[in-house]
């Protein structure tokens, strides 16, 4: 059972990685994976709005503070699996392919290929981006020092 930890994805994690990924990367990695694209559209791809909620004071009662565009799709594979995708933005082709990927990943024989060929590279790119941003921000941290006072 020596599957590397890197390529384990729950369905939720897979959807998170796909939601954040740029459209061209999802399409390119899917095309390169050789996985079958055949699927019947059940819904969409369609773009709509999600009302975004925050919390008063950060942790208090919820309030609505704006909306965002969201694109979603649902598809059914010839073998019956149903896949869904949701992501901020208006990338319709990405939504369709992400739903196909979600459906394919439900078949045990596809799981490793979906993870290794598509999800793992995307997650690595996202971790790289986050890590770089964290390091760039960390470089702007103020390191306070106290000047020596005369009377000491």
């Amino acid at each position: 059972m020596a599957e590397p930890e890197q390529s384990q994805f729950s369905r939720r994690e897979a959807m998170a990685v796909l939601a954040r990924a740029p459209e061209d990367r999802v399409l390119a990695l899917f095309a390169a994976s050789g996985l079958p694209e055949a699927a019947t559209p059940l819904r969409g791809p369609e773009t709509g709005l999600v009302a975004l909620r925050g919390r008063i004071g950060g942790g208090g009662a919820a309030f609505n503070f704006g909306e965002a565009t969201v694109t979603r799709a649902s598809v059914k594979l010839p073998t019956g699996e149903v896949g869904h995708s949701y992501a901020l933005g208006r990338a319709r082709e990405k939504a369709r392919i992400a739903a196909v990927i979600d459906a394919l990943a439900q078949k045990p024989e596809n799981r490793a290929r979906v993870a290794d060929a598509i999800l793992a590279p995307l997650r690595a790119e996202q971790r790289e981006t986050d890590g770089r941003r964290r390091e760039e921000t960390a470089a702007t941290q103020v390191d306070f020092f106290t000047m020596t006072r005369g009377e000491d």
Binding site: T47, G48, L49, V50, A51, R53, R55
Partner: peptide
Amino acid sequence: LPRFGYSKPMDTGAMLVER
């Protein structure tokens, strides 16, 4: 555009902080 729903309240404590 149609409205798909309301998000869960977001957690600003878990923010990837840039400032």
